[in-house]
C-alpha cells in the first residue's frame, strides 16, 4: 500500500520548466565576460607564442638560478629579520590608530557627518599602495627601514580601520543598550558594550594584516625603504641569479613560517 503510494507520487513528479529568463541572463553574462577578456587582449600585450619562441633563452636564464648561492646567508637572514621587524612596527602602529578610526567609521556608533569624512580619509590611505608611500617617506625621512614602517603604518591603518568598522557594524546592539541603561557615557558604551564583542575578530584581522605586511615589506627595500628587498634588488640588477635564488628561498621560508604561526593564533582567538 505504502510503496504503491510513493511510486505514483514519483511518476506524478515533473521537471520544472526551463526558465528562459534565467538561461538568457547567464548567456549574456558569459558573453560579457568573454567580450571584456577579448577587448583587454591588445592592451595587455598578450603574446603566448613568445613563451614558446623564447623557450631556449628562458631555459638558459633559469639555469643561472641553480644552484642557489647561500654563501652570504647570514646577511640574508639578518635582512629578513629587519623586514619582519618593519612589518611588526608598521602593523602595531596601524592597529593602535585603527581602533579609534574604525569606531569613527561605523555608522551604528557615530552620526554620518563623522563617519563619512573619516571613511573617505581611510579610503585615501588604502587607495595608495605601500610602495608609493614608501617612496614618499624615503624622501621625507631618508633611506632605511623607518620609511618602510611609516609606509606600512599609513596603508594598513586604511585597511584595518575598514575591517574593524565592519566588525563593529555587525555587533549585537542589545548589550550596548544594557550598558547605556546603567547611565554610562558614550565612550563607556564602546569600551564595555562594543569592544568585547568585536575583539576576537579584530585580533584575527590584525594577524592577517601582519602576514600580508611581511609580504609587502619584502619589496619595500626596492625603493630604498630597508630590509631584504634592498638586497634582492641589488642582486637582480647585477644579474647575480644564484644569489637571487637564495634570497628568494629565504623569503619563501620565512613568509610561509609566519603564515603558519599566525594562522594558528587566529584559530585560537575565533
Amino acid at each position: 500500500m505504502n510503496s504503491s503510494l510513493s511510486t505514483s507520487a514519483v511518476t506524478a513528479a515533473e521537471l520544472p520548466p526551463r526558465d528562459l529568463k534565467r538561461s538568457g541572463a547567464s548567456f549574456l553574462l558569459w558573453a560579457f565576460i568573454l567580450a571584456i577578456l577579448a577587448l583587454s587582449w591588445e592592451g595587455a600585450d598578450m603574446r603566448p607564442m613568445a613563451l614558446i619562441e623564447n623557450s631556449g633563452n628562458m631555459v638558459d636564464f633559469a639555469d643561472g638560478f641553480f644552484p642557489p648561492d647561500f654563501l652570504m646567508w647570514k646577511t640574508y637572514v639578518s635582512e629578513m629579520w629587519i623586514t619582519i621587524q618593519i612589518a611588526i612596527w608598521g602593523t602595531a602602529l596601524a592597529i593602535v590608530c585603527s581602533i579609534p578610526f574604525g569606531i569613527l567609521c561605523s555608522e551604528n556608533i557615530v552620526p554620518f557627518w563623522v563617519y563619512q569624512p573619516v571613511r573617505r580619509l581611510m579610503d585615501s590611505f588604502r587607495a595608495i599602495n605601500e610602495m608609493v608611500f614608501a617612496m614618499l617617506f624615503v624622501v621625507a625621512v631618508g633611506l632605511g627601514p623607518f620609511a618602510g614602517v611609516l609606509a606600512l603604518w599609513i596603508h594598513t591603518t586604511g585597511v584595518l580601520a575598514k575591517l574593524f568598522s565592519e566588525a563593529v557594524e555587525a555587533i549585537d546592539p542589545e548589550p550596548v543598550e544594557g550598558i547605556r541603561a546603567t547611565g554610562a557615557n558614550g565612550l563607556q558604551e564602546v569600551i564595555f558594550g562594543v569592544i568585547p564583542q568585536v575583539l576576537p575578530l579584530w585580533i584575527s584581522y590584525s594577524l592577517y594584516r601582519f602576514e600580508s605586511n611581511v609580504r609587502s615589506a619584502t619589496v619595500l627595500g626596492i625603493v630604498g625603504a630597508g630590509g631584504i628587498g634592498m638586497v634582492l634588488w641589488e642582486y637582480i640588477r647585477a644579474f647575480y641569479y644564484a644569489e637571487t635564488a637564495a634570497v628568494m628561498i629565504i623569503i619563501i621560508l620565512s613568509v610561509s613560517l609566519l603564515d603558519v604561526i599566525s594562522q594558528r593564533l587566529r584559530k585560537l582567538v575565533t
Binding site: P175, G178, I179, A181, F192, P196, Q197
Partner: peptide, 26 residues
C-alpha cells in the same frame, strides 16, 4: 533607573562580575 531586558542584554564575553560592575558606570 535599572533596566532589565527580555534578552538580558549582558555582554556575553565579559565575566558575570564585570557585567554587574558596569552598573557602577553611571
Amino acid at each position: 533607573i535599572g533596566v532589565v531586558f527580555q534578552q538580558f542584554n549582558l555582554v556575553s564575553r565579559l565575566t558575570v562580575l564585570t557585567n554587574v560592575l558596569t552598573g557602577m558606570l553611571g
